[in-house]
Simulated scan of single mutants.
Amino acid sequence: MTYVWIMLHERSTDAYPMTARQAPASFRGRRAGPPGEPDILQEQRRGRGAQTNLSGRYETEERETLDDGWNSLDDLPPIRTVVQVERAKRIITRNNSPDISFDRSINPYRGCEHGCSYCFARPTHANMGLSPGLDFESRLFVKPDAARLLEKELGEPGYDPRTIAIGTNTDPYQPIERQYRLMREILQVLSDANHPVGIVTKSALVTRDIDILAPMAERGLAKVALSLTSLDRKLARAMEPRASTPAKRLEAMKELSEAGIPVTVMTAPVIPALNDMELERLLEAAYVSGARNAGYVLLRLPLEVSPIFQEWLQANYPDRATHVMSVMRSMRDGKDYDASWGKRMRGAGPYAWSIGRRFELASKRLGFNKERHPLRTDLFKAPVPVGGQLSLI
């Protein structure tokens, strides 16, 4: 018989936002055994990014799994991905953030199986009463009515067409998209309505939909950005366990570009002392593969993301962990994160300035961002609802 002990800790109401110094030792990457001993939960969470399942900021208790000394954790099954249907009422999300280029987006999924430890969307799982840790990448939500809801919203009286961004929170081409195919349905609705769309992904699966995206791009209605974080396959696999390899992403850029679809490379996130030394090489590889626009974003660590990322650092790169966080804080006014408009994407201080300058010089040398590709809204044709009145013209 197997017993798993779950230790419950009372949490005070002022425990969050949690910093690494405030976090319990288990949240700072402590392994279950003595130093140098293999992690007894390593096999269970193989292929996952987060090291633990720390409680969200709205919970009143913290849960910590401990070994009882009887090898009770050795035969636990691997963590499986569980998908739950979410019946959304609307699918277009609006925002008025002054430092991003879009005011509306679509997220067909909640959570992301790619498992990036640094994902700034992780805290959203706390809204569902789940952990931003392992739950975020293994307990996913799918919105099967996404295309129908989109068609309905595009057909509402007074709808004003502007570019819809997809992939701004969780990746729309994460592995479960192969089964649910929501993006194909969404893109077909947008194509039929001549509605502009911008996609951000780190998955080569986006090439599956070239047959829809290429005609849209020809009409000035579509562009795709691929995130490229490292050319080091080992580092990329550690940072993004279930995302496409760097080579696959570069191949996807080539395929999209050759199909006439404008391609942007996002060197994001830039992490000091971990992947920032690759910045120029990432841009060079992307340009050769057909990308003609480029952008970058500095690592962001809001709310629960900070302890999750620091756990990951301690587990994978313990020799660099202190230095990485020291440089990060130097760019965030001594904090793990600064959410101020205009600073959250770029940071501040000498190190942040040097990253920005390197990006500018490399982009200029290679020929990035010479041409912009504004998407058209003048072709928009509102969908006709079932039983609705057709236009006379």
Rank of each mutant, 00 (worst) to 15 (best):
residue 252 A to T: 11
residue 224 V to N: 03
residue 233 R to C: 01
residue 247 A to D: 02
residue 222 A to K: 04
residue 334 G to C: 07
residue 315 A to S: 07
residue 276 D to H: 15
residue 233 R to M: 01
residue 224 V to D: 02
residue 234 K to C: 02
residue 314 Q to A: 13
residue 236 A to Y: 04
residue 301 L to R: 07
residue 316 N to L: 04
residue 290 G to M: 14
residue 216 M to P: 05
residue 260 G to S: 05
residue 281 R to M: 12
residue 221 L to T: 02
residue 292 R to N: 13
residue 329 R to G: 00
residue 282 L to R: 11
residue 309 F to P: 00
residue 286 A to N: 03
residue 314 Q to G: 04
residue 329 R to E: 00
residue 218 E to M: 07
residue 319 D to K: 10
residue 299 L to V: 13
residue 315 A to V: 13
residue 302 P to G: 05
residue 305 V to A: 10
residue 237 R to H: 03
residue 241 P to E: 06
residue 254 K to L: 08
residue 236 A to M: 02
residue 274 L to F: 11
residue 265 V to H: 00
residue 296 Y to W: 15
residue 296 Y to A: 14
residue 216 M to K: 05
residue 216 M to I: 08
residue 248 K to H: 08
residue 230 S to E: 04
residue 237 R to E: 03
residue 246 P to E: 01
residue 279 L to R: 13
residue 252 A to E: 10
residue 220 G to K: 02
residue 306 S to I: 02
residue 311 E to A: 12
residue 279 L to I: 10
residue 261 I to R: 01
residue 227 S to H: 11
residue 256 L to H: 14
residue 266 M to I: 07
residue 214 A to D: 02
residue 289 S to G: 06
residue 267 T to F: 06
residue 275 N to T: 15
residue 287 Y to M: 01
residue 250 L to N: 04
residue 283 L to M: 13
residue 278 E to Y: 08
residue 317 Y to F: 13
residue 293 N to V: 12
residue 335 K to M: 04
residue 303 L to R: 09
residue 263 V to H: 00
residue 227 S to G: 10
residue 316 N to W: 14
residue 293 N to L: 14
residue 299 L to N: 03
residue 231 L to H: 03
residue 214 A to T: 05
residue 326 S to M: 10
residue 284 E to M: 03
residue 212 I to T: 13
residue 268 A to D: 15
residue 327 V to N: 00
residue 317 Y to Q: 05
residue 298 L to S: 14
residue 212 I to G: 03
residue 306 S to G: 08
residue 309 F to L: 08
residue 278 E to S: 10
residue 302 P to T: 06
residue 239 M to A: 12
residue 221 L to P: 00
residue 302 P to D: 02
residue 284 E to D: 10
residue 248 K to N: 06
residue 311 E to V: 09
residue 282 L to F: 11
residue 297 V to R: 15
residue 230 S to K: 05
residue 247 A to S: 04
residue 321 A to R: 04
residue 252 A to H: 12
residue 270 V to D: 03
residue 277 M to C: 11
